[in-house]
Amino acid sequence: MARDVQITFDCADPEALATFWADALGYELQGPPPGFASWEQALDAFGVPRERHNDAHAVVDPAGNRPRLFFQRVPEGKTVKNRVHLDVRAAPGLAGEERMAALEKEAERLVGRGATRLERHEPAPPMAGGHIVMADPEGNEFCLD
C-alpha cells in the first residue's frame, strides 16, 4: 500500500526555515485552519502562549502533489552531517556545461536567501551529472542536482 510522507526538520527557527524552503522549492506556507484569518489568530484562540507561536511551521506544494515539509523547534542544535538530505532538482534534463550553469544560477539565488554553498562536484559521465552541495540557513545539507 502506497503512503503519503511528510518530511520533518528539527530546527531552531521554524518560521525562518519554512520560509527559506518554501522559496527554494516553490512551495507556500501552509495556511491557518478553516475559520481563522491567520495562524496568530488561531494559536491565540487555541490558548497557545505567544512565546510558543514559532514552535512549528509547515510548507505545502501549491499543486498538492509533493510532500508537506514540517519544521519543529528543538532545543539542541545540529551537530553532525545529515544522514538523509533533499536533492533539489534544479537542472532536470540538462547535461554538461548547461547543467552546471543552471545549478550555479540556483546556488547563487539560494545563497542570496540565506543558504551556504559547500562543494561543487563536476560531471563524471556516464554515472554522475555533477551537483552542488549546499546548506540551508540552519546548516542542513542538501544538493542542487
Score class of each variant (00 low, 15 high):
2 A>R: 11
3 R>E: 15
4 D>S: 11
5 V>K: 04
9 F>E: 04
11 C>A: 03
13 D>G: 11
14 P>D: 03
14 P>E: 01
18 A>L: 04
19 T>N: 08
22 A>I: 04
22 A>K: 01
23 D>A: 12
25 L>I: 06
27 Y>N: 02
27 Y>W: 02
28 E>F: 00
28 E>D: 08
29 L>W: 02
29 L>Y: 00
29 L>I: 14
30 Q>H: 03
30 Q>P: 13
31 G>C: 07
33 P>M: 11
34 P>G: 11
34 P>F: 13
35 G>D: 02
36 F>C: 05
36 F>N: 05
38 S>I: 11
38 S>H: 13
39 W>A: 08
41 Q>F: 14
44 D>A: 14
45 A>Y: 12
51 E>I: 07
61 D>H: 04
63 A>R: 14
65 N>E: 15
66 R>C: 05
67 P>N: 13
70 F>Q: 08
71 F>I: 05
72 Q>L: 15
73 R>I: 05
74 V>M: 15
76 E>S: 15
78 K>Y: 03
81 K>D: 14
82 N>A: 09
84 V>T: 09
86 L>Y: 00
91 A>E: 11
92 P>W: 12
92 P>H: 09
93 G>K: 14
93 G>P: 09
94 L>G: 02
96 G>M: 08
96 G>V: 05
97 E>P: 15
98 E>D: 15
100 M>P: 03
102 A>D: 10
102 A>W: 04
105 K>Q: 06
107 A>V: 02
107 A>T: 02
109 R>W: 08
110 L>M: 05
110 L>S: 06
115 A>N: 02
120 R>A: 12
121 H>F: 15
124 A>K: 08
132 I>L: 12
132 I>G: 09
133 V>G: 10
136 D>V: 09
136 D>F: 01
137 P>R: 09
138 E>T: 04
139 G>M: 00
140 N>P: 09
141 E>N: 10
142 F>D: 11
142 F>K: 12
